[in-house]
Structure formats: C-alpha cells, structure tokens
Design a protein around this nucleic acid. Structure first.
Lengths: 203, 203
DNA sequence: CCACTAAACGGACCACGGTCCGTTTTCTAT
DNA sequence: ATAGAAAACGGACCGTGGTCCGTTTAGTGG
C-alpha cells in the first residue's frame, strides 16, 4: 500500500451520488462481515444491533447510518447470498441459466427458488418488509418469470400470472404447507409444476 | 342481575380448559374494545400497548397475559372484522354465500377478498406472523377455495392450486402491485379472473 | 359467613431498536 | 502543507415491547 497513485482507483466517474468516503466503506464492510458471522453463529433472531456494532468495532449510530434499520441490515446480509443465485439465473449454465428451452428454465427456476427460500428462511423472515433486498429479490424473480412467460408465448396479464406462479414459492405460504401441513418438498415442487402447466395452458 | 340461578350459565359443560374467570373475561372485553377504538383513531401503527392498557383501565401485564404479544392483540382486533366476511361466505346470500354456481362463487370470493384485504391492509400488516388470526384467516380462505375447486371438478394438488389462487390477493403481493406499480383495483381483479380460468382449465 | 387455593392483577423493571448531537476524520482547494 | 467544509463517528439517551413477582381477587368447601 505504498506505491503512489498507479492503481485503477474506484473510478472517479461521476454518475450517481458522490462516492463513499474511505472510512465509510471500510466500516460498511466490517459491519457486513460481522453481521454475517453473527447470523451464522446465533441465527438471525439472536443477533442484536449492539452486538453487531461491538463485533465490528464501531458505534451503534454507524450501523443505523449505513443500514437504516435492523431489517435493512438483514436485507443486506441476505442480498449477499441471493446475489449468487441471481447470477446463476442470469448467466449460469443451463437449464437455470440462458440457453435452455424456456419451459425447462422455468422448471429449474421453480426448483432452485424453492430450495433457496427454504435455506434462507429465517433470514428472509427477518429481512422482510422495508422494501430492501427482500423487495428487490422479489422484483428480480417476478421479472424473470415474466420474461420466461413471454418467451413461452403466454398471453394475458403477465404481472398477475407471474405473481401467481411465484407466490407458492414464497415464504409465508411455504411455511403453511411445509411446516403446518407436513408436505415434503418434492411434493410441493410437483404441485408447482402442475400449476405452471395450467398457467401456461399446457396439456 | 338479582334473580337467583335461573339463567342458562356459560354452560358448565367441561370440554376444553376450565372457563375464564369473571374478571378475566371482563378485562378481555375492555381491552378488545379499547384496542379497536384506538386502532380506529390512531391507526394500528400508532397504538402502543401501554396506551391500550391505560385506556382499558388495566395494567400492562394483563394485556400481555390475554394476548401474548402486540401482534396477538392486533390479530384479535382483526379477527373481529374478518369474522363478518367469513359469515357472509359461509351463510350469506349468493353469489358469495352458498346456493350459487361454484364458478360464480369463486369470482365473488376473489372480488370481496381483494376488497377486504385492501380495507384492512394496515391491520393485517401489524397482525401478521404469530399464527394468530392472520394464520386462521388464511387457513379459512384456503379451505374455502379448495372446496370450490373440488366442486368445479378440478384435479391435481388442490392445496397448491388454492394457494396459488389465493396468493395474488394477499397483502405483500397486493402492495407490490397496487402501490408500486399503480395498478387500479379493477385491473388486478381482471387479471385474477384470468388466472382462475387457467387454474380451473376453462376456455 | 369464613378460610383457603388458584388464578388474575399491576406496575416496576429489563432489553433492544432507533435517534441526536457534540466530536473526529476525510477530502479538497489553495 | 494547511485550512476549512462536509461527512462520518460514537455512545448517551429515549420509547416501546415484553417479563417478573409480590399483592389482590374470584371462586369453593365447610
């Protein structure tokens, strides 16, 4: 860290709001790391904001300045995980990624989305509302399904239809079925495929 | 209140847990009334537990003993409102109530459920999770849709299908569409009818 | 009518999310 | 290098949800 100004720099290209100050960026990362670590160790419900602040070695105010609220922080942690899945969808190998038949992509989408939701269940619950990454992730998924439906030549109100297709994969519904009604995951997936056939008007 | 023991009594028939003590029942009602009143006046978000306790003239402990949590209380308030709609579905006049063609009942169900959800939006949001009336109301709606699908001769995993049909009427999804995407209610309903046709495999 | 038990009461108490503001750090312009 | 402004920092502070436990009260058998 001692050679002078020969590095790329975070691109001083103006665009959005002015870039983050160095200390701010450093603290954001420390916080995100600390939060991720704590979530892993204590589960999302067991993590307090004070604990995160302390673990990251910053004051409490800083946590809230960066992430607005507890939910915002959880959303950020979640986002980190979800991003990987989104990358798979956008540019990973088929059938989830581009290149495969849209119908096969839709099926792969449903399957992996179901699994990811179950995996991140607690975190999603904690991050919900606040329109943060939770909303962001939802929007991403909706847009993707909509895209696939278009490619499949489905007519009608695509927003409603993709919502309907997505909904049974979402958390609150999942909980009712997997937890309360003791549905095995495979059976849920199977049911979802049936739904997808109907929505797309397949045999 | 002075004639001796000639009244029906709350039926001393044993069954569930022993009945509520008189003061307990009285306080439950006072609390529910106070809460309803406050919710109406300040909106669900503006109501604090202390306020409810004070308004009802009881201690805070009592509130929590009766309703477990803030969400529990909100759920109880909500339940009160939802019950009326449920009664309409179960035994009101057609097409919502029994007697009409199942398909027409389904449409009426969708329409009224959509309106009710929007009407109670804030309360639902506050009451969510906790498995209280929120879960109860959801279960009721699911069961009813399932029932109608059966009458319509739909085959397949009815639980998943009714969930899918219900989902677009639920709150988080509503918010994304009505609020964010500025969909007028009629358009949402229209889209939902299309979905219903597909799920039931109609022309 | 009184004694006794179990349940309900109430408010002091605690923990956690979120805000506020005086202090410190980073950046920029000279 | 230095001065000055803007932004970030941190932790004391506040309000609210939720618990705890000593006290009161409704029901019951004598």
């Amino acid at each position: 860290m001692s050679h002078p100004s020969t590095e790329p720099q975070p691109l001083p290209l103006l665009g959005g709001p002015p870039p983050e100050r160095r200390d701010a960026a450093r603290n954001r990362e420390r916080l995100l790391d600390a939060a991720t670590e704590l979530v892993e160790r204590c589960g999302p419900r067991g993590v307090t904001m004070d604990a995160v602040a302390t673990a990251a070695g910053v004051g409490k105010g800083t946590v809230f300045r960066r992430f607005q609220s507890r939910e915002g922080l959880m959303a950020a942690v979640l986002d980190h995980s979800e991003t990987e899945w989104q990358a798979q969808v956008l540019s990973g190998p088929p059938p989830l990624g581009p290149g495969a038949d849209p119908w096969d992509r839709l099926l792969a989408f449903g399957r992996t989305r179901l699994e990811t939701t179950i995996l991140h269940a607690e975190l999603i619950r904690e991050a919900d509302r606040s329109g943060g990454s939770a909303g962001g992730a939802l929007a991403f998924a909706t847009a993707h399904v909509r895209h696939l439906l278009t490619q499949l030549g489905v007519e009608g109100n695509l927003t409603i239809l993709s919502t309907a297709l997505l909904a049974p994969l979402l958390l609150p519904l999942r909980e009712q079925q997997v937890d309360l009604e003791q549905f095995p995951v495979d059976r849920v997936y199977e049911g979802w495929v049936d739904l997808a056939r109907r929505v797309t008007r397949r045999p």
